[in-house]
Design a protein around this nucleic acid. Structure first.
Lengths: 193, 193
DNA sequence: AACGTAGACCAACAGGTGTTGACAGTCCAG
DNA sequence: CTGGACTGTCAACACCTGTTGGTCTACGTT
């Protein structure tokens, strides 16, 4: 872990430190949000000097950007049977949120910071709207339907993972799929009401 | 406005100032969130001294509490015809959010601050769950169904009023009612899937 | 008219923030 | 073995934060 010099990207000796910082940053941003998660606290967690954070990530914004770099990766959903796409989508988002705590951090910040909000929106723009379009809707319809789907899953994420309402946390995984799946399905495939 | 002394609650001479502060606070909290909305900035907006804010509201938390005191006031919804309750509920929440910017502020803060999060949850506890129960569900069912409804409307509020996703902002009021109404209706009245 | 009190202002405090620069130790290439 | 680049440490800067106490003004009551 400390001697190899010929990697694809010139493995630096400081990679371990970099990773430690990033882990601590993710944890802090997730727990406290952007403003309250101070560089000093993150550095303390990582047991390094605050100035190292600056050296490696430029500034606080850069650190945050590095900490929440994530790929939503909606898989080739057009392959799914059309009647199952709602449930599949909901299931996919559930695992996504449960595996990546960064998403909670991103939401905490996005609510105040336009740049982070835009990052969240990109999922809608680049993945959900094209998906709705692939399902045969004209542009406006695709926009509206995709917005409704995103609002559905983000609403659940908000009450369950961010605000942690007990009633929402108590819901079982498959219970959620059973309720929200048909909803998303309807938003995507039902005729306009 | 400046001479009456015998009101129900001893109208103070400073009431105008108090109101000015509260207005400025609401605006700032709404725009910036809790941490970024500084007392100094609020005082500057209200064109008074920062120390007055402390004098009248104790501290920053007290000011925030006073700024977002709001009553969701779900009306006597049990009077509504059972088949229309979904649409009525959605319509009610839409006007609520559009008339009270404080709700956006509350959400911005609740995402980071547990106390504010709890305040949001109280709507669920004290209004939605009883409503679901009044519709004839046993306790657990009522909890789950109410959580789904809250998640639905908060999801819309999040994408439309807080994050301001264009695709969500573009939705028309009745369009939202047409899509979300049946969803909420199903969460409240459909048999468990 | 005189007094007590509440409203408003000012200056300052103590602490925390992101960020910077100079210095010492460590590793590898020449 | 010697240079130079990289990793890490320490102390400090300039600024902004919430909050406090003292002081002057103006009103309402007696």
């Amino acid at each position: 872990m400390t001697g190899t010099t010929e990697n694809q990207q010139a493995a630096r000796r400081s990679d371990a430190t970099r990773a430690t910082i990033l882990d601590a940053a993710r944890e802090r941003f997730l727990a406290d949000g952007y403003e309250k998660a101070t560089i000093r606290a993150i550095a303390r967690d990582a047991k390094i000097d605050p100035s190292m954070v600056m050296r490696y990530y430029g500034n606080k914004a850069g650190l945050f950007a590095a900490a929440v770099a994530i790929d939503p990766g909606l898989p080739g959903l057009s392959l799914e049977p059309r009647e199952e796409i709602g449930r599949t989508l909901v299931r996919h988002f559930l695992t996504l949120w449960e595996e990546n705590g960064e998403l909670t951090a991103l939401m905490r910040v996005g609510v105040t910071d336009p740049a982070a909000a835009d990052r969240m929106q990109s999922v809608l723009r680049e993945q959900m709207i094209p998906l709705a379009r692939r399902l045969g809707h004209e542009p406006e319809q695709a926009q509206a339907r995709a917005a409704l789907c995103v609002s559905t899953v983000l609403g659940l994420a908000l009450t369950r993972y961010v605000l942690r309402f007990p009633a929402s946390v108590a819901l079982g995984r498959e219970e959620i799929v059973d309720w929200l799946g048909p909803t998303v399905q309807r938003y995507l495939t039902a005729p306009t009401p």
